[in-house]
Measured scan of single mutants.
Amino acid sequence: EYSEEELKTHISKGTLGKFTVPMLKEACRAYGLKSGLKKQELLEALTKHFQD
């Protein structure tokens, strides 16, 4: 599980793409985000969540 700060850091540095799909799905579930099946959809959901 990833902390909010850790995820925000990866988003701001542009390194969230280094996460694997299972890692991204886990992060989306942890924050109650609707997650797609594609890596890009997962990245967009997390990025949008933490930028709002």
Rank of each mutant, 00 (worst) to 15 (best):
E1P: 01
E1N: 01
E1C: 03
E1S: 05
E1G: 12
E1A: 08
E1Y: 14
Y2R: 03
Y2G: 04
Y2S: 05
Y2F: 14
Y2L: 11
Y2K: 08
Y2N: 05
Y2V: 08
Y2I: 15
S3M: 11
S3N: 11
S3G: 05
S3E: 04
S3C: 10
S3L: 11
E4W: 05
E4K: 09
E4N: 05
E4T: 11
E4G: 05
E4V: 10
E4M: 09
E4R: 07
E4L: 08
E4A: 08
E5L: 10
E5I: 11
E5A: 12
E5W: 08
E5R: 09
E5M: 09
E5Q: 09
E6N: 15
E6A: 14
E6D: 13
E6G: 10
E6M: 13
E6C: 10
E6V: 14
L7A: 08
L7P: 02
L7C: 00
L7R: 02
K8F: 09
K8P: 01
K8N: 05
K8C: 12
T9V: 12
T9W: 10
T9Q: 12
T9E: 13
T9P: 01
T9A: 12
H10V: 08
H10A: 10
H10E: 05
H10G: 04
H10W: 05
H10L: 03
I11K: 01
I11F: 04
S12D: 13
S12C: 11
S12L: 12
S12F: 12
S12I: 08
S12Y: 11
K13N: 15
K13H: 12
K13I: 07
K13Y: 05
G14V: 00
G14P: 03
G14M: 00
G14D: 07
G14F: 00
G14K: 11
G14Y: 01
G14E: 05
G14A: 04
G14S: 07
T15Q: 09
T15W: 03
T15C: 02
L16K: 03
L16H: 03
L16T: 06
L16W: 01
L16S: 02
L16Q: 02
G17S: 14
G17V: 14
G17Q: 14
G17W: 14
G17T: 11
G17N: 14
G17I: 08
K18E: 15
K18R: 12
K18V: 07
K18T: 15
K18G: 13
K18H: 11
K18Q: 12
K18L: 13
F19H: 04
F19R: 01
F19A: 03
F19Y: 15
F19C: 14
F19P: 10
F19G: 03
F19W: 13
T20K: 03
T20Y: 00
T20C: 04
T20S: 11
T20L: 00
T20W: 00
T20I: 00
T20N: 08
V21H: 01
V21A: 06
V21W: 06
V21D: 01
V21M: 09
V21G: 06
V21C: 05
V21Y: 15
V21N: 03
P22I: 10
P22A: 14
P22N: 14
M23G: 05
M23C: 06
M23S: 08
M23L: 06
M23D: 07
M23Y: 09
M23P: 02
M23R: 09
M23Q: 12
L24R: 01
L24C: 00
L24S: 00
L24T: 00
L24A: 01
K25H: 08
K25G: 06
K25C: 13
K25I: 15
K25Q: 14
K25N: 15
E26I: 11
E26D: 06
E26H: 13
E26Q: 15
E26M: 07
E26S: 12
E26W: 05
E26R: 14
A27I: 15
A27S: 03
A27L: 14
A27E: 00
C28D: 01
C28P: 01
C28N: 02
C28Q: 02
C28M: 06
C28K: 03
R29V: 08
R29W: 07
R29M: 13
R29I: 11
R29Q: 15
A30P: 03
A30E: 07
A30L: 14
A30Q: 14
A30M: 13
Y31M: 13
Y31D: 02
Y31N: 10
Y31V: 10
Y31T: 06
G32I: 01
G32W: 01
G32L: 04
G32F: 03
G32K: 11
G32S: 07
L33K: 00
L33Y: 01
L33E: 03
L33T: 00
K34S: 11
K34L: 06
K34M: 08
K34V: 10
S35E: 06
S35I: 13
S35D: 11
S35M: 06
S35L: 10
S35C: 14
G36V: 03
G36R: 03
L37A: 14
L37Q: 09
L37W: 12
L37Y: 11
L37K: 14
L37E: 15
K38E: 14
K38Q: 12
K38T: 11
K38N: 09
K38D: 13
K38Y: 06
K39R: 10
K39N: 00
K39H: 12
K39M: 00
K39D: 00
K39E: 02
Q40M: 14
Q40G: 11
Q40V: 12
Q40S: 15
Q40Y: 08
Q40F: 05
Q40L: 06
E41Y: 06
E41A: 07
E41Q: 10
E41K: 04
E41M: 07
E41L: 06
E41C: 07
E41I: 02
E41R: 03
E41H: 04
L43F: 03
L43Q: 15
L43V: 15
L43M: 15
L43C: 07
L43H: 04
L43R: 05
L43K: 04
E44N: 12
E44P: 02
A45E: 11
A45S: 10
A45R: 08
A45N: 10
A45Y: 01
A45I: 04
A45L: 09
L46N: 01
L46A: 01
L46Y: 02
L46I: 02
L46C: 01
L46R: 01
L46S: 06
T47K: 06
T47E: 05
T47R: 08
T47Q: 03
T47Y: 12
T47W: 03
T47A: 11
T47S: 07
T47P: 03
K48I: 06
K48G: 12
K48Y: 07
K48V: 10
H49R: 08
H49N: 04
H49V: 03
H49S: 04
H49G: 02
H49E: 03
H49I: 03
H49W: 05
H49A: 05
F50G: 02
F50Y: 05
F50K: 01
F50N: 00
Q51W: 02
Q51S: 14
Q51D: 09
Q51P: 03
Q51Y: 06
Q51E: 07
Q51K: 08
D52R: 11
D52V: 06
D52T: 09
D52S: 04
D52F: 02
